[in-house]
Amino acid sequence: MTVLSLKRLAVIALPMAALAGMTTSVQAQEWTPSKSVEFVAPANPGGGWDTLVRTVSRVIQQEGLADENYAAINVPGGGGAVAWAQIARDSGNPHKLFATSPPIILVPLAGASRYDHTDFTPVARLITDYSIVLVSADSEYETINDLFDALKENPGLSVGGGSAPGSMDHISIAGLASAAGLEASSVNYIPFSGGGDAMTNLMGGHIEAVITGAGESVGQLGEGSQIRALGVSSPERLGGGLAEVPTYQEQGVDYTFDIWRGIMGTPDMPEEAVTYYQDLFAEMLETDGWQEARDQLGWIDAYQNSEESGVFLDEQQAQFSGVLSELGLLRQ
């Protein structure tokens, strides 16, 4: 029923969208949205995508950067796959954007989505977070190398993460192990239902180490804390509460890992619209409102425009599929 009616809608909507695209390109070079923009978070309220979508639309509105409203819409399901399937059918629609991050590459590689980043139009990369390796405060490991030496001797040592095997945290630690000279698959990765869950288990001494997002762990570190950070996946040291944490590279392991987040649009989004949005987001990153929100959320600006982020996504896909096939989790 739904499929049928959507197909019918598409039959009507497609020519109209094409027509709209034509008229705008003829009328003016400066394209602007003619109605409210649907801004999709492919997940439930409260998660990373949702926070990004709501923060961006709030800043755009507060700073008066656009005339039209950016309406946050949650389409949860399948780790993003449900939303991607919907957006993929909306080809050419210039009034629909969605938040994205490594799962747009990882989920399809694991065989759980028919659509991947190549089906959509890259608009901009906005921010990044990094991975961090944590141990409990009284752990014997002082550096990332201590941990890997121990792992070499005892591959059973458990490293917890906040997501399923083959997803972000697992790829991050497996890639790190591989760079440190171990087999990627030698890490006994224990998936928990979230980074917080994994950290609780670390505090309770149920696991040896945790890999999670650096931003998520900031609140847990510092004076009086029960956990300690061994290393962070950024190319340079981070600021604030993480200034004391050395990078992997400082410790002789040549490896970085970005947990980037950005914005993508519908398949074949008209070029003028892409240009408009990428410039809008670049402008937004300069505002005080954004910088305040960004700092509070522990994000780091990592802007790339449409073209750059498209290249970046392709590189990421190559890197991830390498690690996944080492892990035997490549299903595509």
């Binding site: 399901g77 399948g78 780790g79 759980a112 989505s113 399923a164 095997p165 998936p191 989790l329």
Partner: peptide, 20 residues
């Protein structure tokens, strides 16, 4: 849905709506 431990789909019958 998707099994958290292995990432395998169980009883989803190929439907993405059941993945979660």
């Amino acid at each position: 849905g998707i099994d958290l431990q292995t990432g395998t789909e169980r009883f989803t019958f190929g439907s993405i709506q059941l993945l979660d």
